[in-house]
Design a protein around this nucleic acid. Structure first.
Length: 903
RNA sequence: GGGCGCUUAGCUCAGCUGGUCCAGAGCACCUGUCUUACACACAGGGGGUCGGGGGUUCGAAUCCCUCAGCGCCCACCA
């Protein structure tokens, strides 16, 4: 006889050892030689130095639900783990550490700095992978990947070279987003716009001497001027033209003439370009080609030269007059405005709200800057990726993200992939110091391919971190080699991630998959919502409003964590969790785990170690409750499976919960108790045991993907069916059993539940003591119902505490009646059960009290001065109260009438 | 400036393609109960004019229009 189990489940004692056992058994490993159909998910690689947060908790729980479900369905389920080197993010972290020592990366030099980063990564990296184990993720750890691994680095280089060979990678001098703090170029996606209140300054640029312009306003000294507007006055120091619309009557004759650029004391031309909108402002635009993307294009079209006026740190450089040199861009802004004011050239200043791009890693305002960078030509890659969505080969959950994907693909812009960082994949490009040739190569070259010189200098830049991420679905499987893994596990199936990285990552993976493997990397993209706090704010370190999943695990268990995040929101829907009240958020999951534990305990007490009897063997002995719960199970199986197939994880989990708690625990176990005790004879006991074992087993399977630990713990303790798997996690997903589905049994049991409910309600309404048993008279709605109720006398006795049951009508007796929806009438005679006199007196008292309040309320409403002063809603509130008092009174009067035998 | 999403009990959320699961669940609240699986539980109960307004329909939380609040995405209006 085993030790009796404690009445409370302790996840802390069970989870980690169980995970270790699963792993040791090799259950997480996927075999490329398997004959089973594969099912593949690649994890969105977290930053290598990241700590697990609730967002990870959510999306990894969902990935694990899918993976565990598919594995149980008999698929060769592979979930690939790994981490991302997170170029700019990780480099920033280490640079901040260095700053504490008063050093910069330049003090160390490139090599020593990289050593330092590697040391940091080795020290802190991998934490998050351990944390994923802690919450039960069934990842195949033998395939753990890192974006800077030699294999993945080779993939990166291969891709760069191939794209270069196809002419899809190019080096260009263009306006890019530049972060003056990180000192690197950023992609368009890495510059995050943020609504900002600011100003727009209107500046006067005087025309060069001798230019006639009759229509223009004039300065006090008589010179005509053009007004241009800008939100960044400091950039005027880099102006090299003023643009007007070619058809704009006001300025047409000025095109080709010049204006005197104030402060800079340069003369710049007026050019004609359709970019200038005659409707906007004065219709004239200052052109700063080196610091504005549109201006750059205008300059290209009109042949105006660019002039860089800022340093990489966004201070004014030597190209500007001495007074402004060295000033930070914002200081320079004030200085420029002040100078214009002083010169009487500040036309006006207006409040202005617009979006300003910020660096997605450090929040610094990004500066557009003319710079030489490497780009990927995206249009040719986007076309097939867009087609894949249009063909339905790639689907989004929820669907609306498809339109967002489409819009981005249709308006795709070239991707700036070079970063002026040190941490990352070095760009595989060398420049020959001899002949100036550019060498792009898979292997580090030793000599120039053109002139043979050995004086080669590698491009100092590294690649955007997403340039390795976009290859993740196949680089993790060994590409560019044709590995067994690649053949077996590409293309994959599902991808689960946050909508924030739809463009950064998801869209680009589709492009890369199609370009380099000729096939989509996955067919279904599930976008989670964002985890927020109870005030709707995004959880963040700086706000201190985060919830640590590991803390939740320690206090409530990993299953509770998973249950909460999975049931907490649907696809693309945000989830609010209160960090100040974890009990509210995670208590229900813990309680449910405890419910499973206790149902297991109950089963163990009743089934013991006896070999399991199948339901088929006792088919003839099955009773109503057995047939009912088997029918319910089959339907639950069908519905949970359908929900999973539709990526509706919330529904799947809640449906499993309802079946387990609402049907199995609340009703079946209670109905089966006396039979399991043997009160109803051996045959009935056998049938109940077989059914209990079957249904509990099925329920645990259904719930395993959501709550893997507790379900496995319980399952392991239960008697195993012949030939079953060694663990729940590798056992078979249940199938619906049409043969078990029994509409009649469901209808009859529903009726029994309604009768029991009615009796319980009456007992509670009349305050009948729990110990007291009541007689019951029933007039059944039909013969079938009558037969079923007749057979359920024991259940009525035990669950409703009925002492005797007659099929008879009330017959003028004093008591309480309930009429069920089916028409069945339930009547409890109350004489002798409660003190009728006392109850009548109580009811009369209640009615009197209500009458007083009703009268009082009416008087109040009739008071004109009150009505005149009160807001309308108060009056309506009072009316509502009055109506509810009347309703209550009516109910009480009915009850009283019944007790007076006047029905 | 475009596009999209959300707004259902005090809280967190279900309610799919309009009418037998339509007003639901869990938590919280009230009343009983330690009934030998579970008080992390059991039984019963109170509570919402489904954001406001209008419309379509025999009938709408569910479809359409509009307004408001919140949030997200995209965009070169200086």
């Amino acid at each position: 006889m085993a030790e009796p189990l404690p009445p409370q489940y302790t996840p802390q004692e069970n989870e980690d050892p169980l995970y270790a056992w699963w792993e040791a058994q090799g259950f997480f490993r996927a075999d490329p030689h398997s004959a089973r159909q594969p099912h593949v998910i690649v994890i969105p690689p977290p930053n290598v130095t990241a700590q697990l947060h609730m967002g990870h908790g959510l999306n990894n729980s969902i990935q694990d639900v899918i993976t565990r479900w598919r594995r149980m369905q008999g698929r060769e389920a592979l979930w690939v783990p790994g981490t991302d080197h997170a170029g700019i993010a990780t480099q920033n972290v280490v640079e901040r550490l260095l700053a504490k020592e008063g050093k910069t990366r330049y003090d160390l030099g490139r090599e020593a700095f990289l050593e330092r980063v590697w040391a940091f990564v080795e020290e802190t990296g991998g934490t998050i992978l351990r944390q994923l184990r802690a919450i039960g993720c069934s990842l195949d750890w033998t395939r753990t990947a890192f974006t800077l691994d030699p294999g993945l680095s080779r993939a990166v280089r291969e891709v760069f070279v191939r794209l270069h060979e196809k002419g899809l990678v190019y080096r260009g001098n263009r306006i890019i987003h530049w972060c003056p703090r990180c000192l690197t170029a950023l992609s368009d996606e890495e510059a995050e716009p943020e609504e900002t209140h600011g100003r727009i300054w209107h500046l006067r640029y005087p025309l060069a001497p001798g230019v006639e312009a009759p229509g223009l306003p004039r300065l006090p000294d008589g010179r005509p001027y053009i007004v241009v507007a800008t939100t960044r006055p400091e950039t005027m120091l880099g102006d090299t033209a003023v643009a007007v619309h070619p058809d704009d009557e006001r300025y047409r004759e000025l095109i080709g003439r010049e204006v005197d650029l104030p402060l800079a004391e340069r003369r710049i031309p007026v050019v004609g370009d359709t970019y200038a909108d005659p409707e906007f402002g004065s219709g004239a635009v200052k052109i700063t080609p080196a610091h504005d993307a549109n201006d750059f294009e205008v300059a290209q079209r009109t042949g105006v030269p660019p002039l860089v006026v800022m340093t990489p740190e966004a201070a004014m450089n030597d190209a500007v007059p001495e007074a402004f040199r060295g000033l930070d861009r914002f200081e320079a802004r004030r200085a420029v405005v002040a100078a214009f004011e002083e010169l009487g050239l500040l036309d006006k200043v207006e409040e202005h709200t617009h979006s300003i791009p910020h660096c997605y890693r450090c929040g610094t305002i990004v500066e557009p800057r003319l710079s030489e960078q490497w780009f990927v030509r995206m249009a040719p890659l986007a076309a097939p990726a867009l087609q894949a969505w249009r063909d339905g080969r790639v689907r989004f959950h929820p669907e609306r993200f498809g339109k967002i994907y489409e819009h981005w693909m249709e308006n795709i812009r070239d991707w700036c992939i070079s970063r002026q960082l040190w941490w990352g994949h070095r760009i595989p490009v060398w420049y020959c110091e001899g002949c100036g040739e550019t060498v792009v190569a898979r292997e580090d070259p030793t000599a120039c391919s053109k002139c043979g010189a050995d004086a080669l200098r590698q491009d100092p830049d590294v690649l955007d971190t997403w340039f390795s991420s976009w290859l993740w679905p196949f680089s993790t499987l060994g590409w560019p080699d044709e590995t067994e893994d690649l053949r077996a596990f590409y293309p994959g199936h599902a991808l689960v991630t946050a909508p924030e990285i739809l463009f950064f990552w998801v869209a680009r993976m589709v492009m890369a998959g199609l370009e380099f493997r000729g096939d989509i990397p996955f067919s279904d993209v599930y976008l989670t919502g964002t985890v927020r706090d109870h005030l709707g704010r995004k959880m963040s370190k700086s706000l201190g409003n985060g919830i640590d999943p590991i803390d939740v695990k320690q206090r409530f268990g990993a299953d509770a964590l998973r249950y909460t995040v999975i049931t907490g929101s649907g696809a693309g829907t945000d989830q609010n969790l209160n960090y100040e009240n974890l009990e509210e958020s995670f208590g229900p999951g813990r309680n449910f785990a405890n419910k499973l534990w206790n149902a297991g305990r109950f089963a163990l007490m009743n089934l013991g170690d006896a070999p399991r009897v199948s339901v088929e063997e006792v088919r003839a002995e099955l009773e109503l409750a057995d047939r009912w719960i088997l029918s319910r199970l089959s339907r639950a199986v069908r519905e949970v499976t359908e929900a999973l197939e539709k990526f509706r994880f919330q529904d799947a989990a809640l449906r499993g919960y309802d079946f387990f708690w609402g049907d199995l625990a609340d009703w079946y176990l209670e109905l089966a108790k006396p039979r399991l005790r043997g009160d109803a004879g051996q045959a009935s006991q056998r049938a109940a045991r077989a059914t209990l074992a079957e249904v509990l087993d099925g329920a645990l399977r259904l719930l395993h993907p959501v709550m893997p630990f507790i379900t496995e713990v319980v399952w392991q303790k239960l008697p195993r069916a012949q030939g079953d798997a060694p663990a729940l996690m590798v056992s078979a997903w249940p199938e619906p059993r049409p043969a078990w589905e029994d509409a009649e049994a469901e209808a009859l049991l529903e009726e029994l539940q309604a009768v029991i409910g009615a009796v319980r309600n009456i007992r509670s309404e009349y305050g009948i003591q729990p110990a007291a048993r009541v007689p019951l008279r029933i007039s059944a709605a039909s013969d079938a119902v009558r037969t079923a109720l007749d057979a359920s006398r024991r259940a009525l006795r035990d669950l409703a505490r009925v002492e005797e049951m007659d099929f008879a009508s009330a017959n003028g007796e004093v008591g309480a009646t309930a009429v069920l929806r089916s028409g069945t009438e339930v009547f409890i005679p109350l004489a002798g059960v409660i003190d009728l006199e006392k109850e009548r007196a109580r009811l009369r008292g209640e009615i009197e009290r209500l009458d007083g309040q009703i009268g009082g309320t009416e008087k109040k409403l009739g008071n004109e001065s009150f009505v005149a002063r009160a807001p309308v809603n108060v009056v309506e509130y009072e009316r509502g109260k009055l109506a509810s008092f009347r309703e209550q009174r009516e109910k009480l009067a009915e009850k009283l009438a019944a007790l007076e035998g006047a029905r």
